[in-house]
């Protein structure tokens, strides 16, 4: 019996080790914005988590998710700090390295990294790889396809992933129409508007109103830019030159009113005739 009771420390040690191992990814979460963020190398995690790789993947993902729920973007740029992006990227990459079939981290990469244009080629490469691994899943193929066209100007890859998405979804016409637009090199903004409308619809179905609202801001921005650009185009056709500013378009009746910039900045037309926002974030996004 005495030997038995002296096993208790071992038991505690074991539980402690187990907790430590599986909470390792958690060690990277900190509440304040000021702290050091670090992630453990994926290979090391794969080795130490042994038969609990999938669990470790889940914990990594939840870690990133809760972090996103707590941390605010910087007020002037609506972006995170570079090291924060890096941490988010590494954490999600770890999750995917631990379980390459896990959908959620790809999903989060797409919404939190791609749209903020963080390491586009690398992150979309991961998403495309995920689409290959999850050979039955149309969503990742759709994401990869859209990103290749919209962010990376790779029309061939974009087309093949969108076609794949259509095939996997059993011929969803939405994917087909996107693929067709990619094929005749349609206006990127139109494609993005289609994409965002579909995503917002999905998020609202899931009851994720917060995330839907943040996409809605992006959608409003793109819609505003698109509206003004159409007006600029018709102005140019009429007068053979660019308008001096947006107000000229309103005066002439090409625009009913100036669309509201959702992030609190304002739109302007640059010297090459492209419509932009005065807010940095909006500029990056547009």
């Amino acid at each position: 019996m005495r030997r038995l009771t002296s096993l208790i420390p071992w038991f505690t040690a074991l539980c402690g080790t187990a907790l430590y191992l599986y909470a390792l990814p958690l060690a990277t979460v900190k509440k304040s914005q000021q702290e050091q963020l670090f992630t453990i190398p994926a290979n090391f995690l794969r080795v130490v988590s042994g038969q609990f790789k999938e669990l470790s993947a889940d914990v990594s993902f939840l870690n990133a998710l809760t972090w996103l729920g707590e941390v605010k973007t910087q007020p002037d740029t609506h972006r995170y700090r570079p090291e924060q992006y890096e941490w988010l990227h590494n954490t999600l990459k770890n999750s995917v390295a631990l379980d390459p079939y896990f959908l959620d981290p790809y999903y989060l990469m797409n919404s939190a990294l791609i749209w903020d244009r963080y390491k586009l080629a690398e992150v979309n490469g991961l998403i495309a790889k995920g689409a290959d691994t999850r050979s039955w899943d149309s969503m990742l193929a759709f994401f990869a396809g859209f990103n290749y066209y919209y962010f990376l100007d790779d029309n061939d890859k974009s087309f093949s992933y969108l076609k794949e998405a259509s095939k996997r979804s059993g011929g969803n016409p939405f994917y087909d129409s996107l693929a067709a637009r990619v094929a005749y090199k349609a206006n990127k903004i139109e494609l993005a508007i289609m994409y965002l409308e579909q995503q917002i619809h999905e998020l609202e179905l899931q009851g994720l109103q917060n995330q839907a609202a943040s996409l809605q801001r992006r959608l409003d921005l793109l819609k505003g830019i698109h509206q003004i650009e159409l007006a600029v185009e018709s102005y140019r056709k009429l007068f053979g030159k660019l308008p001096a500013d947006i107000h000229e378009l309103v005066k002439l009746g090409a625009l009913v009113s100036i669309p509201k910039e959702p992030n609190g900045g304002s739109f302007y037309i640059d010297s090459s005739g492209r419509v932009k926002s005065t807010r940095l974030f909006s500029r990056i996004c547009g």
Partner: peptide
């Protein structure tokens, strides 16, 4: 708490 792969996480 899981967004998409709920069944997978529960199974894990």
């Amino acid at each position: 708490m899981i967004m998409r792969d709920v069944g997978k996480v529960a199974t894990d």
